[in-house]
Design a binder for these strands. Structure first.
Lengths: 215, 215, 215, 215
DNA sequence: AATGAATGAGTTTTCATTCAT
DNA sequence: AATGAATGAAAACTCATTCAT
């Protein structure tokens, strides 16, 4: 009883969250029942309402947890002493690491993001706005107009999608084949993704400057 | 009553399918009820069991419809008279057109693909295998070993994800902002995606041949 | 299968309504569960949502049924050929008969009337307004100002309460003692109640005319 | 901390009781949850079990509180020096005053009285018996046989109902219109009610003596 | 080919209560 | 005297499906 090293001795709230993330990633939010979550977490069903005020409360918590970590990634330390390219690479590196360490959290957020769940509609819009605000600095570094909401709004999701794409495929590959990926793979993956991302931004900037030149 | 010009006079089966695709794309398969589908389609609830043998039957039909069209894209006419690059570009071009014309169908398939729905697990595996079989020719054209299931298994999903990624973001952008995309955009999008895709394959090939050279 | 004479062969909707009225009268609306109603009615639980769109739907139906019958009582046939007193007596007579034949219906309506059930708040107000409109003619016959909402608003409930009071006490007396009441009793009851009611109205009229004279 | 002047500093037990009376009167006993009571009273949920041994314990306490006060009313000081009519008027006067000062307490008791709440069934019977015992003296003063349980059993509830009827209507009138009542109104109300009550008793006595004369 | 009433297992949520602190 | 986390049963309701017509 001194400390709590065993799996099942973690805080109930966290156990629910973990179980839910696992199950949501596996079957999707709507397909998972609270009973299943409670059973998987080894807690009483009522605890879900108690801690999260209902099933959507868990999804809310999951998304908020993910978004919080995601926002931190965009805050590159000493960004003004580095080149835009270096910043972009650093962000990509952190992002890959983050998603690798929180794959299910990321997948659930990514999967549920476009789906209409009325109770979290506001939350999604709020976070997307916060991200745009946070991300705009790097885009201005690349010469994009910070007031150009549409183009700026494209970067974040693209960045996210680009990385998540791999982890999504990976989970299918794990399912169909039995493949696994090592550190070296992710080093290269980061490099390729960063390059693609930079190319994408450069393309956006170039295309933007002369209004959209005739082809 | 001679022919069927009005929206609501289409075949009931098709009306159900259309309604389901729309709703599944909006809320996700598990979050949509048969009553909702029936109401949206303007048919009796029992018709869903009658035509599709239950709710999963609709998802099955949706995925099969999508996969069928997707397979056709991989069959480039007169492929042996064209370069591998030209074939890749042609595939990408068809794919973008296909997803553009069947966005919701594609999104539903993409969204539900990694989710565990026991009744369609077999269907998914079957189609993925058929695709690998169909796609292997182009990969051999690029110098990949057709027996290398893992690498070949990566191409299809990557290709798919790359394209779908845009349409997914697009639906969010439509929601949050009011952005829309024109033909010119998709021309360029196809070119960029094809380039990225080719680069990816070239990378895979290069990395593979000499086992993995020291950096 | 020709006709349906047996108790349990009535229409499910009616069986639910009957069971609910009985149970609501016994324990109060909030204390009765849908499972209990369904069991008592011998129908599947889902039928309650199916026919009444939820538990409050039953209460709504009960109250509407009662109110409808109550309204009819206020429409005295050939009222203009009778004295106000005769009309009042006729109303009282019908009312006693009505409540005697629909005791539980009346008791449930009476019991739940002052309780806050948000979903039926509007319904209650609507019916009360309709009653005031319907009842105003008799009050004008007695010399009351039909625009005097407050005083007119008192008559209906008083009339109702006066009669219901007896049936409420009766149910307790049945519970505590084993007393029962016969036709002769109700004849006299009607006469007394009518007298009291007329005295009440006369009192209201007298008190009203000279504004409220100093005592 | 010396004395307790503020609203929220009253004894927790009393705060619970007050909150419960208010809520029970508003929504009915069964429709109110302990959490709601605890929140309204500003105490911890467990305090309800602690002080009242559960939700029904509160209802028990409420009813007992009301019944106690009600019993006192029946004990007219120096009753034998006054006429039966004077005693009846004094009782009615005290009763109106009592209900006016404890309206919600009275309404809750009145509302829940005919409802089946197994845990308080005994309590209700006990108090009704005590009341009959206490009230019988006045009835004998009017010439009724104290052994005639049925007739004696009618007086108390009638008396109570007669008064409560007004307060019940009043709460609806407050809801629907915005009417309020002053001291003068209650003076007159008391006189009318007492008259009605006396008439009722006289009627009972007269009807009783010659067994029930043929009409 | 099509209906809609009916089913029963399923859903999430809330209940009053208890227990360790 | 008081807390609030935790419980398990029960709440109302919805589900996909079936069946008689």
């Amino acid at each position: 009883m001194a400390d709590k090293p065993s799996e099942s001795d973690r805080e109930p709230r966290q156990r629910i969250l973990d179980a839910a993330v696992r199950l949501f990633a596996q079957k999707g939010f709507a397909a998972v029942g609270v009973r299943e979550i409670a059973a998987e977490a080894g807690v009483n069903i009522s605890m879900i309402s108690y801690y999260f005020d209902g099933k959507v409360g868990i999804l809310r918590a999951i998304m908020e947890t993910f978004f919080e970590g995601y926002l931190k990634i965009l805050d590159v330390p000493d960004a003004d002493t580095k080149s835009a390219e270096a910043c972009a690479f650093e962000i990509m590196d952190s992002l890959v690491r983050y998603v690798r360490e929180n794959t299910e959290l990321a997948l659930v957020t990514y999967n549920e993001l476009p789906l209409e769940v009325p109770e979290i509609a506001e939350l999604k819009v709020d976070w997307i706005k916060r991200m745009i605000k946070h991300a705009s600095w790097i885009l201005t570094r690349f010469g994009l107009d910070p007031a150009d909401g549409i183009r700026i709004g494209m970067i974040g999701p693209t960045l996210f999608s680009l990385v998540i794409m791999h982890f999504r495929i990976r989970s299918i590959q794990r399912l169909v084949f039995g493949f696994s990926f090592d550190d070296a793979y992710y080093e290269e993956f980061t490099r390729i993704a960063a390059t693609f991302f930079l190319d994408g931004i450069h393309g956006l900037v170039a295309r933007d400057q002369p209004e959209r030149k005739p082809e």
